[in-house]
Write a protein that binds this DNA or RNA. Structure first.
Length: 879
RNA sequence: GCGGCUGUAGCUCAGAGGGAGAGCACCACCUUGACACGGUGGGGGUCACAGGUUCGAUUCCUGUCAGCCGCACCA
């Protein structure tokens, strides 16, 4: 074993071995309790970033923890076809490399190219998951466009259609001209943008009056079909029902009254363009207005725009404004900031567009999901996300699921050219179900990627075949771990789809974590160029260090910042553990003997470290059961570094290098026991180094990954040993502090006299003699409850004892008197505070007895100490 | 407009109804037979502000300020 742990030489070998040994394979036939989780599938042609690494780490902690707990764990991996993202990438490459657009080569050839692309880059993700140490069951890897999952998608589509929960309709959708497809509402990001409010005059037909409307998108006026005012707006009461002449377009449009209009905004007159605005669309429906489309799906003006036909929206706006101004219709222009929808994928401004699309009717599907959240059958960790979840579902609009793409699940609907009937079917129909006609053509569009992701927890397990072994055993899953940024996109949709199609929630617990930010707190993104590939980090410090950083940085639902410093801290911790293990293994050559751990053979400090271990086991177990990853990791860090390395190992050296072979054997056993349990407790967090250490520990066999989670022993609880050890630690720290303050070099030995103030503590202090001698570099140690204070000694008063360090010529008695006087002052302050508190009848009668007792003990201790200090001051005064 | 998060040491962040913690950074000392990716000791905080509840609030409640996020609307 090398003094520097070399992750690079260990990790890949271990992962390969785990995989070939089948350690991560689920065992559906096993009698053990199933524990299942499905991975949030990353984009198959993408690259994992640190956010994914965090997500994976948390899941792997749960998977490994439950495997150790004895559960039959299924952690199912896989990837998503990511419609728009993948198609866009392949399109870009096609253009760059061959100068072709997808329409040049046709649908079939293009889709074939995407599959090639997937084959080429699809294993980037899986190799990253391996490098991270993800204990997934590769034999069950899935892809959203696998045949089985595609069948699930078609089944769901057909059933929802038959139930009337999917419909095709002409509605306003969000159109991204760059992606060339419709988007759902949540794929639109609203960004505060500088813009203009144009005030335009619309004259009445009789030329008598003029109505001024305000608009931010003047180019849409070619699609105007009315101007609306509020029915109670006195200013315009006389206009309602009259006709206006639409400038530039030479059409007549009516003035109508509708409550939608806010009389206080703009002029109180709104142009109504049902084909290009969702609100106007609704007004149009209410008033039975035409839907005139002045802009096409390609983002260009239609023939309605006259001369402007064929122009894009931006140019059309400029020209429209110019014409209005030239012809005297433009009254004024006002600068405003307003929020404008942008495509969340490519940031292009999206246009509301009237379009024939497929929709999922949300109201009925949302209801049971809302109930599950309200009843807390669906639990969010942290809980505050329940409210956010419910709030969103409460007034969610119908979900536009059709996308004008080629890469994805093609919509299973066929149009008959004879009777125009739509046949919706799981299998491709050969004839129209209505008229039997043979001229069928399938809908060109594909489904929103999230439509298939929504089915992921059950489509991956064989559904709709509910008799499938995996589905029967592992569904519903146990927990979903993902980022809060896809709460609506994904979690909500899995919940309502799961409820609708399987009758149960797909998981009862949803653990939501935050986003990874860079060291300056900025979101990591491609455009900022601050994204990080976890594999690069792993090459540098190892997967364990990365995982431990991400785990300790986890606070429920909160974001975390990534920094090199944190990473180094984790690397150092891994190295510390490695070296502590080296130390133990260098000093223990044999398997730990059970007899050596018999309670009556244990010394105080042995009992102390076992008590601490037991407490750590219980805490970490409780914390992991409640998904408190960060606290669990920090608890282990503290135990390993402080208690085990800084104290126990140092104390153990006394007996390891000593002559008492029975003591030596016991200490070896304790060291081995603590180390063994420690690496098991740490294994979910840092699987590689713990597996490597495990292989060296005498008496272990098999994989640590397949071992049993420690439960410790109730016999290890020992409050007394712990209390005594703490007193000794206090004394040792006080002596070291004194040494340092007096500039006495650590190498200089010095005699130490310890007067134990309470008789009953004497045995503990006597037992701690060796420990004090070693850790304070004492030359000789005198421990008694009564003793003459040696000449020329400094006095250190600690909780259990007074310590005298006789150092003739070194101690400056004036300084010593002053130091003690300060100590007395501090003690008196404490005593006064506690006396006041304990003198308060309300406190004594109302505070819990335990608290009151604690304060009384503190007071007694301080008084004892003050007395000791005073005595010593008195003696020094006489000298 | 509605909802949420955050505000604690120089920095990054935990935490919890009973006189505040860690890591890093900083200062001093240490080649002690696991580790300098180490050890020992130290300095450093009105726990954003103001009220309230309580015997007791930094923790719970209300409000204010500051930073951030989500949702809705925006002619």
């Amino acid at each position: 074993m090398s003094p520097l742990y070399d992750a690079a030489s260990v990790e890949q070998r271990i992962y390969t071995n785990w995989e070939s040994a089948g350690v991560f394979r689920a065992q559906p036939k096993s009698p053990r309790r199933p524990y299942a989780l499905v991975i949030p599938p990353p984009n198959v042609t993408g690259v994992l970033h640190l956010g994914h690494a965090w997500d994976q780490t948390l899941q792997d902690i749960l998977a490994r923890y439950h495997r150790l707990r004895g559960d039959d764990v299924l952690w199912l991996p896989g990837t998503d076809h990511a419609g728009i993202a993948t198609q866009t990438r392949v399109e870009r490459t096609l253009l760059e490399e061959e100068g072709l657009r997808r329409h040049d080569i046709g649908r079939e050839a293009f889709v074939a190219k995407v599959w090639d692309w997937k084959a080429k880059y699809g294993d980037t993700i899986t190799s990253q998951i391996r490098r991270l140490g993800g204990s997934v069951d590769w034999s069950r890897e899935r892809f959203t466009m696998d045949e089985g999952l595609s069948k699930a998608v078609r089944t769901v589509f057909v059933r929802l259609y038959e139930k009337g929960l999917i419909y095709r309709g002409n509605r306003i959708i969000n159109w991204c001209a760059r992606c060339g497809t419709a988007l759902s509402d949540i794929e639109v990001e609203h960004v505060e943008t500088e813009g203009h409010l144009y005030y335009v005059d619309y004259p009445t037909v009789d030329g008598q009056e003029t109505v001024t409307i305000a608009t931010t998108r003047p180019e849409t006026m070619f699609g105007d079909v009315a101007v609306a005012v509020h029915p109670d707006d006195a200013r315009y009461a006389g206009l309602i029902g009259k006709s206006l002449r639409l400038p530039l377009a030479h059409r007549e449009i009516p003035v109508i009254a509708d409550e939608y209009v806010d009389p206080a905004y703009g002029t109180g007159c709104v142009k109504i363009t049902p084909a290009h605005d969702p609100n106007d669309f609704e007004v149009g429906e209410r008033h039975d207005l035409l839907q005139l489309q002045c802009m096409n799906a390609d983002g260009r003006m239609t023939e309605l725009a006259g001369d402007l036909q064929g122009l894009d929206a931006v140019t059309a706006r400029t020209k429209t404004v110019e014409s209005l101004e030239k012809q005297g219709f433009l009254r004024r222009v006002e600068k405003i900031t307003h929020s404008v929808g942008h495509c969340s994928r490519c940031s292009t401004v999206v246009n509301p567009l009237l379009s024939l699309q497929w929709f999922v009717r949300m109201e009925e599907l949302a209801r049971p999901a809302l109930k599950a959240a309200e009843d807390r059958e669906l639990k969010f960790i942290p809980d505050r996300f329940s409210k956010i979840f419910s709030h969103w579902l409460e007034d969610v609009r119908d979900w536009c699921i059709s996308r004008q793409l080629w890469w994805g699940h093609r919509i299973p609907a066929w149009f008959c050219s004879d009777c125009e009937h739509v046949t919706v079917s799981i299998e491709s129909p050969t004839a129209c179900e209505h008229c039997g006609g043979l001229c069928l053509s399938q809908d060109e569009d594909v489904l929103d990627t999230w439509f298939s992701s929504a089915l992921w927890p059950f489509s991956t397990m064989g559904w709709p075949d509910t008799a499938n072994e995996d589905f029967a055993r592992y569904y519903p899953t146990s927990v979903m771990v993902t980022g809060y940024d896809i709460l609506f996109f994904w979690v909500a949709r899995m919940v309502f789809m799961g409820l609708e199609f399987t009758g149960t929630l797909p998981f009862s617990d949803v653990v939501l974590h935050g986003l990874i930010r860079d060291s300056e707190g900025r979101k990591m993104s491609k455009s900022l160029g601050n994204g990080i590939n976890p594999v690069d980090v792993i090459e540098e410090v190892g997967a364990d260090a990365l995982r431990f950083t991400l785990a300790t940085g986890t606070a429920p639902g909160n974001d975390q910042r990534y920094s090199i410093e944190k990473l180094e801290g984790s690397r150092n911790f891994v190295n510390k553990l490695w070296n502590a293990s080296r130390f133990v293994l260098m000093n223990v050559t044999q398997r730990a003997e059970k007899e050596a751990l018999a309670v009556d053979r244990l010394a105080m400090t042995d009992r102390w470290i076992l008590d601490r271990l037991q407490e750590t086991i219980l805490s970490v177990t409780r914390l992991l059961d409640s998904y408190e990853f960060g606290e669990a990791a920090r608890t282990l860090y503290d135990f390993a570094w402080d208690d085990f390395c800084d104290w126990y190992i140092e104390i153990a050296k006394i007996d390891l290098y000593g002559t008492n072979s029975s003591r030596k054997e016991t200490v070896q056993s304790v060291l081995t026991t603590v180390l063994t349990h420690l690496v098991q407790l740490l294994h979910p967090f840092i699987p590689f180094v713990t597996e490597e250490i495990w292989s060296f520990i005498p008496g272990t066999s098999g994989w640590i990954a397949a071992s049993a989670w420690p439960t410790g022993s109730t016999e290890w609880r020992d409050e007394e040993a712990t209390a005594s050890t703490r007193l000794l630690q206090d004394v040792i720290r006080a002596i070291r502090n004194f040494r340092s303050a007096q500039n006495i070099p650590p190498s200089k030995q010095m005699p130490i006299f310890v007067r134990v103030r309470q008789e009953h503590l004497l045995p503990s202090f006597q037992e701690g003699e060796g420990m004090m001698r070693r850790l304070c570099n004492g030359s000789e140690l005198h421990i008694a409850s009564q003793m003459e204070i040696p000449d020329g000694a400094a006095t250190i008063v600690t909780e259990g004892a007074d310590v005298y360090v006789p150092l003739q010529g070194v101690i400056d008695f004036a300084a010593e008197r002053q130091r003690l006087a300060e100590e007395e002052k501090r003690l008196v302050e404490e005593i006064t505070r506690l006396q006041t508190k304990l003198g308060n009848v309300q406190f004594v009668s109302r505070a819990p007895a335990q608290v009151v007792d604690g304060e009384r003990r503190k007071l007694a201790d301080y008084e004892e100490r003050r007395q000791a200090v005073q005595e010593r001051i008195g003696q020094l005064a006489k000298m």
